[in-house]
């Protein structure tokens, strides 16, 4: 390529091009690859994040394998992901509703989007109150129906579902907006043709809407899984001690506690790397499963 152009202008433009390419590459090396490499090195030491660290080889990784609390926190993290399909189904249903001419449509869309732009910390504190066993909004509403609600966040069986419900509520608006855009870009002609063929509403949804929004579904699943694997803020605010018997502790929460509270930066980093690799593997599997319609990425 370089040899094909010989004029001065051509070479000068090439140099400029390299400079432009260099900017993001250097940025990536400096701010991503270098920290990752440092993190990997740290995971092989007994660093406490403060002073001199000693090289301990794979000790931290051996400990990851046998640490029951880390396994528990990983289990919790993946348990929270039950909320992802529920949230996607709800937001798709909402998006379909919102794409019709219903009264106060703009107002409704806005209401559903408010949680998305609100501060996560503020939301977590509000929900912590809502889940309070005595005075909480949730239990007051349940009491109208004669149900005596549990003390949600202090009960090891109810704490996780409570957090899932909050996460679904928080993410609904974002998924809905993306689905809305996808639904509105489906060509009307497809529905018209289907109607002529005598397809009912459900058949139209199954055969047209669902496949046409599939790229969005895929995007949302991938980003939600990655985001869900890193859930931290709401856990730390709503259950500062990781919940009864560490029943709400997420993997990132546990990593944070070990690294910053107990000053085991080396071990915390090793767990972070394991978690990162797990996310990588899961994401690769998702891409493989989605290969059939890889055309949508073109």
């Amino acid at each position: 390529m370089l040899s094909s152009g010989t004029s001065r202008l051509h070479r000068s433009e090439h140099r400029w091009a390299l400079l432009f390419v260099a900017a993001p590459v250097v940025g990536y090396l400096l701010f991503t690859l270098y920290p990752v490499a440092m993190a990997f090195y740290t995971s092989l030491t007994n660093s406490n994040g403060l002073g001199v660290a000693r090289f301990v080889g794979l000790d931290n990784y051996v400990r990851v394998i046998s640490d029951g609390y880390f396994h528990q926190s990983l289990f919790n993290t993946f348990f929270y992901m039950i909320g992802i399909p529920i949230g996607l189904a709800l937001s798709l249903a909402l998006a379909i509703g919102m794409s019709r001419a219903i009264p106060a449509r703009t107002a409704l869309r806005t209401i559903y989007y408010v949680p998305v732009i609100s501060s996560l910390a503020a939301i977590a504190i509000l929900w912590q109150w809502a889940y309070n066993g005595d005075f909480g909004l949730v239990n007051q509403v349940l009491a109208w129906f004669g149900i005596d609600g549990p003390n949600w966040l202090a009960d090891k069986d109810y704490a996780k579902p409570a957090i899932i419900a909050m996460a679904i509520w928080k993410g609904l608006g974002y998924s809905m907006i993306l689905y809305l855009a996808a639904i509105q870009s489906v060509p009307r002609t497809l529905y018209e043709a289907a109607e002529l063929d005598g397809a009912n509403g459900w058949q139209q949804f199954r055969a047209i809407t669902l496949p046409m929004v599939r790229p969005v579904t895929f995007f949302l699943v991938v980003t939600n899984v990655i985001g869900g694997a890193q859930i931290f803020t709401e856990i730390n605010i709503m259950t500062p001690t990781g919940g009864p018997e560490l029943s709400t502790a997420s993997a990132v929460w546990y990593i944070w506690r070990q690294a910053f509270k107990y000053q085991q930066m080396g071990y915390g980093t090793a767990m972070a790397i394991v978690l990162g690799l797990l996310i990588l593997v899961i994401t690769l599997i998702q891409f493989r499963l989605n290969r059939r319609n890889s055309f949508v990425l073109d």
């Binding site: 920290p35 993190a39 740290t42 996310i279 690769l284 989605n290």
Partner: peptide, 26 residues
């Protein structure tokens, strides 16, 4: 196909780096 692998790699790299980007030095 190629693009999807590239995209996969990028998403994965981002995922990995955001998990790890907790530690830095100045």
């Amino acid at each position: 196909m190629k693009k999807s692998r590239l995209a996969a790699g990028m998403v994965a790299a981002i995922a990995l780096s955001t998990t790890l980007a907790a530690c830095g030095a100045g």
